[in-house]
């Protein structure tokens, strides 16, 4: 076979199955949404919320199943309770928001685990809301599409206010930005993203999409708007690369994407550190000729 044809085959081979094509579409959609929201998650230091709020699905889920209510509704209720509780508890003086997250999520997750022990609770309940990137359904895809629209819309509208808080939280009220309202809004957006994305991708992968691409993008640009775009781009490219890895190396799909995204960050971090060292060495006026060791 001609080499270029072989390359083409290599490139297209993973997508011959509809399963992997769906997975691709899902990760691209959630890469766009997660990369953009992730920029704010990283700026506002919401990493813990992003990682742990999904645990708050559990009590809502179990509660709903015990009451005979729709599971998704229960999960959403659990997440919203957690998001609002975190925003409120984080305002107690002396406690930072991460401590608030620890308190809220530990208690809710413990409650969920206790309720799940009830003989009336169906087994594998949590599994119902924790998806695998290869098991994506049409509903998941539709939800992900909706999420992109809602999230990009909301982030565009809120952008100026978010910038004010990100720059200087203390003087935000003086500029007419209500910090509690914005905290709750961001956490609720995060909760909605988790509710949708966790069903499609599983928790690990969602956290990876929310954290690693914006952290990497921050190394490349310090301005917020370009950073969000770069972050989304890294998320999409990394996710596709992860799927290739999973296809050709035969490694677990979700974990492969997560590993590629974190790896991208590490490579960029090492690269920018080396570049900075090089610049310093060049610009520092030294008596030695150019090319002196850094």
């Amino acid at each position: 076979m001609h080499p270029s044809l072989a390359l083409l085959t290599w490139l297209t081979d993973p997508w011959t199955e509809a399963l992997t094509r769906r997975a691709l579409l899902e990760v691209v959609l959630l890469g766009i949404a997660g990369g953009a929201l992730g920029g704010w998650v990283v700026s506002f230091n919401l990493g813990y919320s992003a990682e742990s709020l999904a645990h708050a699905l559990l009590p809502g889920l179990v509660g709903a199943s015990l009451l005979g209510a729709p599971l998704l509704l229960g999960g959403a209720a659990g997440l919203l309770v957690a998001a609002v509780a975190v925003a409120v508890a984080g305002r107690i003086p002396g406690l930072d928001r991460d401590t608030a997250v620890a308190v809220v999520v530990t208690a809710l997750f413990g409650l969920g685990a206790l309720l799940a022990l009830s003989p009336d609770t169906p087994a594998g309940l949590q599994g119902l809301l924790f998806g695998d990137v290869l098991g994506v359904s049409d509903t998941d895809l539709a939800l992900a599409g909706g999420l992109v629209v809602v999230l990009v819309g909301a982030l565009t509208v809120l952008h100026p206010r978010l910038l004010v808080i990100g720059l200087d939280r203390l003087s935000a009220p003086a500029l007419g930005v209500r910090t509690l309202t914005m905290d709750v809004t961001v956490l609720v957006l995060l909760a909605v993203t988790l509710l949708v994305a966790v069903q499609g991708l599983g928790n690990l992968l969602v956290v990876a999409v929310l954290i690693a691409p914006p952290s990497a993008a921050r190394l490349l640009t310090r301005r917020m708007a370009p950073m969000l775009v770069v972050s989304s781009a890294i998320a999409v490219v990394g996710a596709v690369a992860g799927l290739y890895l999973s296809y050709y190396a035969g490694t677990a799909a979700g974990a492969s994407i997560a590993a590629v995204l974190v790896g991208t960050y590490l490579v960029l971090a090492a690269g920018t550190a080396a570049a900075a060292a090089l610049t310093r060495a060049r610009t520092r006026p030294t008596p030695e000729p150019a090319g002196a060791p850094a």
């Binding site: 990493g47 990876a208 952290s215 492969s256």
Partner: peptide, 24 residues
């Protein structure tokens, strides 16, 4: 004084490694 996104990155990396080890 802040370990937030660094912690998340390390955690995601560790969990991904764990899943790959367990699965593959």
């Amino acid at each position: 004084d802040r370990y937030d996104s660094q912690t998340a990155l390390v955690l995601v990396g560790a969990l991904a490694a764990g899943v790959i080890l367990a699965s593959d």
